[in-house]
Amino acid sequence: MQIERDTRGAELGPNQYEDAEGYIAPLPAGYGPRSNPLGAFPTGPEVGEYLPDVVAVNSEGSTVDLHIDREGKPAVLVFTRSAVW
């Protein structure tokens, strides 16, 4: 699936760019980290499906297997862009 970048928006002033929904940021819409998909885009497994395995290293350096770690409890899994920038 070829995903298009949403470049709609307007320059309001120095380092002030508004996107199609009116959010203002220092970068134009569609530039670098401000690359939002336009229209339909993949959102992974669907509601009703088993959450795929997630095995990754946590902030303490230990490997975590989400389905084992949640110990039979509901899980909320957030995919975020970066904790750094």
């Binding site: 949403d6 996107d19 199609a20 929904e21 959010y23 939002n36 998909p37 336009l38 229209g39 885009f41 959102t43 992974g44 497994p45 669907e46 509601v47 009703g48 499906e49 088993y50 959450l51 389905h67 949640r70 039979g72 409890k73 509901p74 899980a75 909320v76 899994l77 957030v78 995919f79 975020t80 862009r81």
Partner: peptide
């Protein structure tokens, strides 16, 4: 970026993805 919510069985019950 987005969020998946599962039940105790690990089945996805809701997910949240926005273009923006």
């Amino acid at each position: 970026p987005g969020v998946y919510v599962t039940d105790g069985e690990g089945i996805i019950t809701q997910k949240f993805f926005e273009n923006n």
